[in-house]
Computed example of a mutant assay.
Amino acid sequence: MQSLKSSGGFFAVAVAAVTLAGSLPARAEYPEKPVEMTVLFGGTANTTAQLLSELMSRELGSPVVPVARTGGGGAIGYAHVQSTRPDGYNIVWNSNSINTTYHLGNLPFNYEEFAPIAQVSVEVPVLAVNASSGWKTLEEMAQAVKEGGKTINVGISGKGSFTHLTSAALFDAMGIADQVNYVSYGDGKAPVELLAGRIDAAIQWPGQFLSYVQSGDLTVLGSTGAEPVSVLPDVKTAKSQGYDVDISMWRGLAAPKGTPDEVIAKLEAAAKAAAESEEFVAASKNIGFEPAFKSRAEFGEIIARDDKFYAELLGELGMTK
């Protein structure tokens, strides 16, 4: 009799548990709380991230909060995100810097520690000088520097930065690398430094120079991508001017390795909707970037390919550690 009572009691409890489980609400789907987007740089990277986070928030139905973690060419921000739980609540607004920072010896891990979400945009660096220099083309600059026999000051965001790498590659192709002195000034200060005459040239993003080119104060001599930039369509590429340089910066989103596929898929869909929205496309014309959405699979291939490219380029320039 005691055995039957115990059996009956167990059955009753089991039935009650099933009934209760059926009455509970389903587990909330991702995202249940704000998603934090680490932003590695200021300038156009930060401006674009602010807009992207706002547009993605609408798609996800939960806030995407941009948080600046700058320094070390992106190393500080990458290290932070890589150390977080792979649950989709910490993502990084990344760029080619994941490749360059690693091969420069500033990160103890490479791109494989992150799961690609989507490429969102592309920015093509351009070389600007003070209009008073009289230079109109890369060849005119190269010839003047060679004939002058003097060292010129070139502004960069920081030692080992993408602008430093791009500058080194371009001036090497132009044959004046030995006559360049690099001056670090931080993000967003290139136009002011050029106008003040503290530097002779600077490679930066088109958006920084656009208004000064329109006013006639600065001249852009060339761009470093395969195609001309849309906001400065009359500026010729370095390659079309006879210099074998093809360097552009992609920007996109990544999460810590191990983030669930279904979470990555939701973030990818939100990034796609944002990147292809009218607001994002319109902003690109003012900020100076090219909307260029790529799926997580395509993005992953681009990152891996670029990792090899920058490892070789940095090696050729003697910049690897």
Score class of each variant (00 low, 15 high):
K33A: 15
L314R: 03
N90S: 15
S83V: 08
A226N: 10
N46F: 14
K239R: 13
L55M: 04
V235R: 01
V124P: 02
T219E: 13
D246E: 14
E227K: 13
D306G: 08
N181V: 10
E113D: 11
V129S: 06
Y111C: 03
A297E: 15
A304F: 08
P31I: 03
S248D: 14
E113S: 12
W93E: 03
T219A: 15
V183N: 08
G43C: 06
Q204F: 15
T224V: 06
L253D: 13
K146H: 06
A131Q: 11
K136F: 03
L60Q: 05
V39E: 03
I303P: 01
P31A: 13
G74M: 04
G288I: 07
K159Y: 03
P206A: 08
F109N: 03
I303A: 05
T163Y: 01
A28N: 08
A26I: 11
H103E: 12
L317Q: 01
G73H: 00
G105R: 08
M141I: 06
K136M: 09
G22S: 11
S215R: 11
E278P: 10
P66M: 08
M1N: 12
E278F: 11
G318A: 11
S223C: 12
A265N: 01
V126D: 00
G216Y: 00
A17Q: 10
V263P: 04
I76Y: 12
V220Q: 00
R251Q: 13
A311T: 13
L195A: 05
I302P: 04
W93P: 03
G155Q: 06
L267R: 02
I98W: 01
A75E: 04
A128S: 09
K308V: 15
F41L: 09
V220L: 05
G43L: 07
K159E: 09
Q82G: 09
A142Q: 05
G186D: 01
S95W: 08
F309H: 03
T48Y: 01
S132I: 06
A270T: 00
T151R: 13
Y185R: 12
D246W: 02
K150C: 03
N181H: 14
I117F: 03
A118D: 02
D178R: 07
R251I: 10
T101C: 04
A297T: 15
E227F: 09
E123W: 11
L127N: 04
I264Q: 02
H164G: 02
G72M: 06
P34R: 09
P291S: 08
Y243W: 06
H164M: 05
T151K: 14
Y30W: 12
I203Y: 00
A304W: 06
A131S: 14
T166M: 10
P116F: 05
G43A: 13
K272C: 09
A202I: 00
V122P: 09
S57I: 06
A254E: 12
A168H: 06
V67W: 09
L107P: 02
V65P: 01
P125E: 00
Q204W: 11
S97Q: 09
K189A: 14
L138N: 07
S223Y: 10
V18I: 12
E262I: 07
F209C: 02
R85C: 11
G258R: 12
A201F: 11
T163I: 02
Q208G: 14
L221Q: 07
S95E: 00
T84R: 14
G300C: 02
Y212G: 09
I302L: 10
N46H: 13
G71C: 04
L20I: 15
M174N: 07
P233A: 15
